[in-house]
Amino acid sequence: MAFLGLRVWPTPVLRPMWPFIAASGLTFFLVSKAQDMGVRSEQYKNDPRNPYREQIAKEEAAKHH
């Protein structure tokens, strides 16, 4: 018997959605890595429009010392 539309057994949510959740995590990770590689590339490393320019310069200075 349904009481206020609730069933005895819950509707499965996670089980049919796991491929989409896994693909979302993988996509987020790969896009993040691609963006990081692009920001740190030789062409854009010293570009004044690069918001990570100072951070990259500090890391390279620490690496050389």
Rank of each mutant, 00 (worst) to 15 (best):
M1L: 12
M1D: 15
A2P: 00
F3S: 11
F3K: 07
G5L: 13
G5D: 14
L6I: 07
R7C: 09
R7Q: 12
R7G: 14
R7M: 09
V8H: 06
V8C: 03
P10G: 10
T11P: 05
P12Y: 01
V13M: 07
V13F: 11
V13D: 07
V13I: 15
L14M: 14
L14S: 13
R15G: 05
R15Y: 01
R15L: 11
P16T: 08
P19W: 10
P19H: 10
P19D: 10
P19L: 12
P19C: 12
I21C: 04
I21M: 06
A22N: 09
A22S: 11
A23S: 15
A23H: 06
S24K: 05
L26Y: 01
L26N: 01
F28E: 03
F28P: 00
F28N: 06
F28H: 08
L30Y: 15
L30N: 05
V31E: 00
S32I: 00
S32W: 03
K33S: 02
K33H: 01
A34I: 01
A34H: 00
Q35L: 08
Q35E: 06
Q35S: 05
D36T: 03
D36Y: 02
M37L: 14
M37A: 15
G38R: 14
V39W: 08
V39M: 09
V39L: 11
V39K: 05
V39T: 08
V39P: 00
R40D: 12
R40N: 12
R40Q: 13
S41W: 00
S41Y: 01
E42W: 15
E42M: 13
Q43W: 09
Q43D: 09
Y44H: 11
Y44A: 07
K45H: 13
N46F: 05
N46K: 04
D47N: 15
R49G: 11
R49S: 13
R49D: 15
N50E: 01
P51S: 06
P51A: 03
Y52S: 01
R53K: 10
R53Q: 06
E54Q: 05
E54A: 06
I56K: 07
A57R: 15
A57S: 08
K58F: 07
E59L: 14
E59K: 12
E59N: 15
E60C: 02
E60D: 09
E60T: 02
A61R: 13
A61V: 04
A61G: 11
A62Q: 08
A62W: 01
A62G: 10
K63N: 08
K63P: 03
K63M: 12
K63A: 15
K63R: 15
H64T: 10
H65G: 15
